[in-house]
Amino acid sequence: MRWMWIDRIVELVPGEKLVAVKHISMAEEHIHEHFPSTPNRKPMPIMPMSLVVEGMAQTAGVLVGHAEGFKEKVVLAKVSKAELTREPTPGCTLRYTAIIEQRTAVGASTKGIVELIDPQATANSAESAQVIGSIDLLFSHLDNNMTGVQYPKENFVFSESFKTLMETSGIEADF
C-alpha cells in the first residue's frame, strides 16, 4: 500500500463529511529519516507535516471523489491553509475530519480539522483527542480543467489502494 496516509475511514456522510484515522508507527520508514530538533528539544522521530497535509488531502479527496461516484479525477490543486500546532510522534493516532465547503463540476473546496490522540495523554485525562490544526484545500476535477488539457480516460487518481481502503472501512464504492 504505497503512499496511503490514512488507515481507515471511520465516518462518511456522502457529499458532506468524511472522518479518517492514521496510526503513526515507528516501523514507518519515513520516521527513521525525520528527526527534527528545536532549541528546547533534542531530535526525535516525528511525522513530517507535509505528510499530515497529504493525509488530509486523501481524506478530503476521497470525500469529493465519493460525492462524484469516483467518476472524476480529483486532484489536490491548492493548499489554501495549513496550520499545525503540535508534532505527531509514533504511537499517536491522527484523526482527520474533512467537510466539503463548495463543490461544482470543476472542483471543490474543503475545510479540515486535524486531531491527535496521544495514548499517554488519554490515560491521564478524559480528553481523548486534541485539535492540533486545520487544513483547508482546493481540489480540481482534471477533465474539467480550465486550460483544456486532455488526460487519459482511466481514473488514475483512485487506484487499487483507495479501493482497498474503502473495502476495509466497510464502505461500498464502485470504482
Binding site: A77, K78, S80, E101, Q102, V106, G107, S109, L138, S140, N145, M146, T147
Partner: peptide, 10 residues
C-alpha cells in the same frame, strides 16, 4: 493561475 480562478470564484 487557472486554479486560482476557481478559488476566487468559490
Amino acid at each position: 493561475e487557472s486554479i486560482d480562478i476557481l478559488d476566487i470564484s468559490f
